[in-house]
Amino acid sequence: MKKLLSIKNIIISIAALLLVWEILFLCSSYSKALFPSPLMAFYALIEMIRSGTLLSNIGTSMYRFAAGYFSAVAAAVILGLILGRLPKVFQYINPVVQLLRPISPTAWMPFVVLLFGIGDIPAIVIIFIAAFFPVLLSTVSAVGNIDPIYLKVAKNFEISGSAATWKVIFPAVFPQIANGIHLALGTAWIFLVAGEMVGAQSGLGYQIIDARNNIRADILLATIFVIGVIGILLDSLLKSAEKRILKLWGLK
C-alpha cells in the first residue's frame, strides 16, 4: 500500500513537472530549436536510444563513475581508519584537508587536463576528489568516536593491529561511515557531469556540450533527464545495499 502510494506521488509529481514545462513552451517566445517541448525531448531520447549513442555514453560515464567513486571510497576508508587511530597525526593533516575540502572539484579541472590531457582520467580524478573528502572525514570522526567498549574487548581478546581494524573497528564504525559513503555518491555523480563537460570527448556530460554545439536543445534536455534518472537509480541501489548490510548489524 505504502509503495503504491509512493508510485502515485511520483507519477503526479513528474506529470506536474511536464505540465509546467509544456505551459512554458507554449508561452515562450524562443524558437523551438532553443526551447523544445517535452514531446520533442522525448523524441530526441528515442532517437538517441535507436542510434546507440545514449547507451554508449552511459556506459562510458558509468565506467568513469565506478572507477572514480570506488577508488575514492576505498582510499578514504583505509586512510580514515588509519588516521582515526592516530588523532595526533590527524591534527597535522586536518588543516590541509580543511583547506582542500571547500575547493570545488571543478576548480582542479584545467590543471588535471593540463597534466593528463582529455579523456577518462580528468573525469575520474574529479569524481575521486568529490567523493574522497566526505568519506575520509566521516571515517576519521567515526573511528575517533567509537564506543570504547569495542577497543576494550579487542584488547582483552588480544586482537591487535590490522586484525583489530578489520575484525572490530571497521565493522563497528561502518554504520557511521555508510552515511558519508552515501553522501559522496550524490556529490560524485554531480561532478561526473561537470568533469565530462570540460575534460572529455565522450560520456553524458560531453553529450550535453555536443548538443549545445549542434544547437540540439531537445537532445540536451533529454540527456539532463537521463542524468537525473540514473542519479535516482544509483541512490536507491546504494540505499538497498546499505539496508541489507545494516540488517546484518542488527540495526534495522
Partner: peptide
Amino acid sequence: SEPTINHITIFQNYGLLPW
C-alpha cells in the same frame, strides 16, 4: 600492565559485536 586473554572481563553493557 596490559589486559590478556587469560584474564577476561565481562562488562555491564556486554561488549558484543552486533554484526
